[in-house]
């Protein structure tokens, strides 16, 4: 049933795909965390002309399938771009930083990254918001009574506690980002699922192609789980030592 092991060439395809999956998810997690934090700040802001549009924004991104969002960014979004930008996106170019050069990636990479990041950021924002709401209001009131400015109370009292509460669900969102990156295969981004499907069609060694890909996904999720456990221990030790 398993047959001969996969030839080196096909293993290389799978690991190249894995590299793309790792790079895409890592970049997504970093940018989505920053963006999600900003969205959270806007969402809990007092003025309703800030909070309400963001509420609608988050609701739309959380309640539509990522696949459809990716199709939209890949096939549909260029409609809203000016012609010059559209041409620029489709043309190859490179950035030069001394000896290093970065090639502008093909459009499916840009669309995949934008789609995955905006989707993930919407979920990250809600995790941050839940963290902020979980801190008892007395904490901020007390900090203000001690003479801190609103900004100081936020920075030194509310945020550290909110981030600590939000960390476990945040790690869950990072795991989701890794798993969701597989959906970008639908717009032709050559990540791990795409590679496994390609190897399977070429070799008919379904068990090995899907098996290796599945194990690699599980390995990343387990690694994030361990990282979370390590952070928790370190945090507990730091707090116990005080």
């Amino acid at each position: 049933m398993f047959g001969e092991p996969l030839a080196g060439k096909y293993l290389a395809w799978l690991f190249e795909g894995f590299g793309v999956t790792l790079a895409l998810s890592a970049l997504t997690c970093v940018v989505a965390t920053a963006l999600g934090f900003a969205l959270c700040l806007g969402r809990i802001a007092r003025p309703i002309w800030v909070a309400w549009p963001l509420r609608a924004w988050l609701s739309v991104f959380r309640n539509t399938p990522l696949l459809v969002q990716l199709f939209f960014w890949y096939f549909g979004a260029t409609f809203f771009f000016p012609d010059a930008l559209r041409e620029w996106l489709n043309a190859p170019h490179a950035w030069r930083l001394g000896v290093f050069g970065i090639d502008w990636p093909p459009f499916e990479y840009v669309a995949g990254f934008v789609g995955l990041t905006l989707y993930t950021a919407a979920f990250v924002a809600e995790e941050f918001r839940a963290g902020v709401l979980a801190v008892p209001p007395g904490q901020t009131v007390t900090a203000r009574a001690l003479g801190m400015t609103r900004l100081q109370a936020w920075r030194h009292v509310l945020m550290p506690q909110a981030v600590r509460i939000a960390l476990p669900p945040l790690l869950g969102q990072y795991m989701n980002a890794v798993k969701n990156s597989s959906m970008t295969m639908a717009i032709g981004l050559a990540e791990l699922s795409y590679a496994s499907r390609q190897v399977e069609t070429e070799t008919f060694k379904t068990f090995q192609a899907f098996g290796i890909a599945t194990l690699l996904y599980v390995a990343v999720v387990v690694a994030i789980e361990f990282a979370g456990e390590w952070l928790r221990r370190r945090d507990a030790r730091a707090r116990g030592g005080r």
Binding site: N180, S182, M183, V221
Partner: peptide, 17 residues
């Protein structure tokens, strides 16, 4: 834990096969 770690697309491939 396994089913929570696997992407939906991979599982659909598996069941399809």
């Amino acid at each position: 834990a396994f089913f929570r770690a696997v992407p939906v697309i991979m599982l659909i491939f598996w069941t399809y096969f």
